[in-house]
Each structure stands twice: as C-alpha cells, then as structure tokens.
Design a binder for these strands. Structure first.
Lengths: 333, 333
DNA sequence: CTCTCCTCGCAAAACGTTTTCTCGTAGTAT
DNA sequence: ATACTACGAGAAAACGTTTTGCGAGGAGAG
C-alpha cells in the first residue's frame, strides 16, 4: 500500500522538527519566524511537495481567492471578450474565475448567482437579464458584486459601455454621409443597451433636420438579420443601423444573395466590433465596444472591493466608431 | 448592530428545535430521519435562508463539486466552443467550472493545472501545449484528469477529434473535383493535430496518382493567412488547404484584395467550422470539428471518473466535411 | 409485560488550515 | 548577578460542516 494521501501541514512539521504553527507561519512569510528555521521548513515542504490545501485555507480565512462570472450566453462574442479580459486580469492578481452560463434563463441566472457566490468571494453579473427590481433585491445578498452593462445600480459598482454615445457616432457618421432615411433594427427590446440606443436615435431625430428613423424589431442573432432583409428593403431607406454586428452580418449576407450592392445601394452599420466584423465583405462599419477592457474594468472594480480600497462607483467606457466598407454616400436614383 | 453573518447549521437547529446532526441529516436527505421532522427542518432552513457552506462541506467531504478547465487561448473559437459544451454539461450535472487561460504559456499551463487542481475535483486539459513527456509526468498528480485533442495518453482519458479523417475528407473532396497540385498551410507544427493532418496528406500522396502537396508553414491566426498569400499564388497550385478556418479566412481576405477569384482561380478549404466560416464570401468549405460535442464528451469522461463509473479510455469524434462555396473545379488555363 | 427496533439527541472526532494566547529563553540593562 | 524585555515557538481554539458512536425514549410485536 503506497501512501497516496497528499502531505499535510503536520507531515511537514514532523519532517522539519517543528510545530505545525511554525510551518504555517513560515509558509506564509510571517516575519516573526527565524529565517534559518523558515528556510528549513520550506525545504521540508519542497521535499514533500507540500502545498497548503486551498479549501481548508478558505474555510478559516473566509475567502476563496475565486470570483464568479455569470454570463447569459457563452456563445456571444462580446461576453466571450468580457470573460477573456476579466479572466486574464483576475489571474494576474492571483485569483481564480468560476464561469457560469445562464443560457438566457432567468431562473437559472438567479440560481447561479446565488450558488456561485457561496463558493467565491464575489460575483460579476454580466449583462444580467433579470429586471431592475429583481436585481436590486438580489444584489445585497451577493455583495461584493459588480454589474456589467446595466444601468446605474445601488449596492454594486457598474461598469459598462456607453451605447448611447456609440449610437450617436453612428448617426453622425451616417448623416454626415448624407443619409436621411434610416432603419434601426432593434434587438433585445427590454435591455438597457437597447433603450440607450433608442434614446440617442430619438435625440438625433429631434435635433436633426429631416432625419427619419424607422424601427424594426429584429433580434440579436445572425438569423434575425437575414429574416428582415425584405422588410428592410421595402422601407426604401438608404442606410440601416443593425442592433449588433451579428444582425448586420446576417442582413449583409441576405442582401448579397439578393444582389443588393452594399454600400452603394444600402449602407449598413453594426455594433460591438466582434472579431469577424473586419472580415465581412464589405467589412463592417461599426461602433467598437471595448469588451476586453470592460472585463478588465469589471475585475478592477471587484478587486477594489475585495481589497477594501475605495470602490469604483461607476465606470463607463466609450465605444469608438470604426469606419469600414459597409457605409458610403447614399445612391441618388 | 444588525446580524449580518450568514446563518449556520446551529441556527437552523435552534430554530427547528433539533440537534445539529439532525439538520445535517435532513438537509442531505438521509432516510433515517422522520419525514415530518425533515420537513420542519427544511422549513426552518428556508425561513433563515440557510444554505450549507460549500467550503466547509468541501473540506470534510473531500470534494468541491467543481472542475477546472485549462485552455491555451480563450480567444480561439474552437476552445470557446469546447468550454461552452463542457460548461453546460457540467452545470447540468450540478458541477461548477473553473476556467483558466494559460495564454499559450507553457509555464503558466503547468502552474495553472497544478493550482486549479487543488481547489477542484479534477482538471480538463484542453489541447495542452506541453510536451508528451511533461504531460505524462504531470498527469498522475492531476488525476482525475481528462485530456482534449491530444494523442493517446496513459493516466487520463482522452477525447478528441480525428483530424486525420477530416483531412482525408478534404483531400477526397479536392481530388474528386480534379485538383492535383495542392498547398497545405501548416499551423502549429509541433501539435498532434498537425501531425495527424500531415500523415493523412502523406498517405494520400502515396496512394493518389499524380497528387502533389506542397507544405508552407504559416501559423494559426488570421494574419498568418494574409501573410502567405503571395507565396501561395507563386506555387501555381489550384487549391490550398489551410490549417484552420482563421488562416483560410485570412488568405481569402488577402486574395480578395488581390482580385483573385475564389474558387474559380483557387479553391480554399478551412478546418474547424468556426461560427463565421459560413459567412465569408464565398462561404468556406471546411471540415467541421464538433467542438461543443467535444466539450460535452470531455465532461462525460470526467463525470465518469468522479462517480467511479467505468472510465472512458478514449473517445474520438469525426469531423464532417462541409462543402460551401470556396471550392470548385480547378480552372483550365 | 418485555423485547426489539426505529428515530433522534448528544457529544465528539474529523477535514487542514490560520491565528491567538501563552510560555520559555535569550539578551540587555542596571 | 538579577530583573526586565523581546522575541520565537508551541498548544489550543477556531472556521462550519459531516459523520460516527452511543444512549434514550417510544412504539409495535410477541
């Protein structure tokens, strides 16, 4: 029978000929331990291949060095980028990341947030689908928490992108080109990011002379874009603002099949600047949401709470307009 | 001073008027406890909002209900898909997933695997970059572990895609179309998946009459494809087999700029069938690697080990050829 | 009426650490 | 030489559960 059990702190203590308290102190760099002794302990630990059990450590310390990220859909490129930025930033600070995919299910989102919080030091809610009220009610139990891409919240720092500003840039770009009749392909109509876009459009219509924007409810996925192609064409608009790049790409694909010339007959803009937005033909003009930076900022906000620094109340990153080939001066029939 | 502390098992015991052992038994569905009493305990727990501390539970039970996934690059669509399939399958079985991005760094990969294993019940190594020897040496310490997309291993079940079979399908497709002079754009030249492709090519060249395949080392990213465009054209080949979809898309993009007609002048194939492979123009002919299923299979293999079922020694999924618009009969000058 | 089995309470050990408290010893100052 | 200080290290408590052993009480069966 070989001893398969992982060595414990007592084994190290025995080998080094000291008490187990001393081992703990030595391993944690406690300065009250004699350097020579500490070295002897470390040598013994190394010889045994000892590493303190994180679980036992977590129990007594009350912290797990782990945070949870709850995401509505792991398939969404934006969430993937947020997760990537978050994960790498957290790892750099010596933290681990628990990822939970709620699959757009509200109950699941609730359950996952609660469940993961119990085994972590905090949870980052990524664009939570739950209502404002539910969120406000749940937040205290989750604290410390960080909310990404939602409106201002009480009880948790919020980091997000300014979708209104992004939309304004798109509108400015389009109107500067000379477009007056636009279509807005709405996506998640209950989301805050949709309302921000809508408000920006409303403001532009109010201020701009002769600007018309027709709203068509599409969806958030590629297929949503292909599905509304004919309706879009029927409007006679010269440019269409898609809810996001996926929808824009879907629309673009459907229009290519219909032999509609983009951008000469119709300009199209996306939103997000997902990895492949640059590689469509024509490449997509879009408002780039700094998703990776969003993830990093979310981690920074969480880290600040965990280390009891002054909390970041709210941080908003501004998307940048990226003009590519899918927009141009409107055609003059 | 409000009591902010989470209720403990003793609080529930006190409220329900039973001993703390009974609470534990009741909460864990131990059949030796009277159903009525169990219900009373559960009611008390619900009233207090009690949930057993997973950390304390993990310590005594010796399991965390969590597994770790170590991934070389969270930006890679294939790994994202594997993570997604894995995460959802694990969640369905009541497990949590710790994700670690090694950023293609070998030392980091080692460190992360070891570190995450300590706080989880097992680790899934996703296409580990470390050498065969290092892997074999590390695996015992990680057990239970699952390896994804590597050659057969001792000490851990392996799930993976049959890249050789995928390559054979591509070659068959291309030769059936009439192509004889091909270029293979090699990617990660040290990887097992590369060698599998190479072997399939070598076999085809040996068997096929008049088949020539020139190998050019490119890379694994979009830019690698754009970079070798001129060299590819200089070969005079009629079809090019890219290492993966990313490289194929990069090449396609560069060729479009050079006004090379794909597929009429040059056929291109990818590998993986990443989400956007269907949306390039022309859409990409590729060998679809069932990445989500790979993730699910990896979880199944892990779950089997955790529940002491008969372990899955090795599972190989076969890619399916997806013929789209980027391949055609070679042009006859 | 007694025997037995079932249910439950109680107490305590165990999981593997960190941390507080306490004590012994060595060094320093008088 | 003695007393006081300071420092290093050991013993024990604590973290919040699960689990085991044992005993008590009640109910049902013979």
């Amino acid at each position: 029978m070989a001893r398969a059990a992982r060595p414990g702190i007592t084994d190290v203590a025995k080998l080094a000929g000291v008490s187990l308290s001393t081992v703990s102190r030595a391993m944690n760099g406690n300065p009250t331990v004699d350097p020579a002794l500490a070295e002897r302990v470390r040598a013994a630990a190394a010889q045994l291949g000892y590493t303190a059990s994180p679980v036992a450590r977590s129990l007594v310390l009350g912290r797990t060095q782990t945070v949870a990220v709850v995401i509505p859909d792991l398939e969404n490129p934006t969430f993937q980028a947020i997760l990537r930025g978050l994960s790498r930033a957290a790892t750099a600070d010596g933290y681990h990341v628990l990822v939970a995919d709620s699959r757009e299910d509200l109950d699941e989102e609730h359950a996952l947030a609660r469940a993961t919080r119990l085994r972590t030091d905090g949870v980052i809610l990524c664009a939570p689908r739950m209502s404002e009220d539910e969120l406000a009610e749940m937040l205290p139990a989750l604290s410390p928490a960080v909310v990404v891409n939602r409106g201002p919240q009480v009880g948790a720092p919020v980091v997000g992108a300014d979708y209104g500003a992004g939309m304004r840039q798109i509108l400015d770009h389009l109107t500067a080109l000379g477009h007056r009749r636009l279509v807005y392909l709405a996506g998640a109509t209950r989301s805050v990011t949709h309302r921000a876009r809508q408000a920006a459009i409303a403001a532009a219509v109010r201020d701009g002379e002769g600007l018309e924007v027709e709203e068509i409810t599409a969806g958030v996925a590629f297929d949503s874009g292909t599905a509304v192609a004919d309706r879009v064409l029927a409007t006679g608009a010269t440019a269409v603002i898609a809810y996001n790049d996926l929808v824009a790409m879907g629309l673009l694909s459907a229009l290519t099949i219909r032999r509609v010339d983009v951008p000469r007959q119709l300009s199209i803009t996306g939103f997000d600047d997902i990895p492949f937005a640059a590689y469509t033909s024509p490449p997509l003009t879009t408002a780039a949401v700094p998703a990776v930076e969003l993830g990093e900022a979310a981690w920074a906000a969480m880290h600040a709470q965990l280390t009891a620094e002054e909390p970041t109340p709210m941080l908003t990153l501004t998307p940048t307009l990226i003009v590519r080939g899918s927009t141009a001066i409107p055609h003059s029939d």
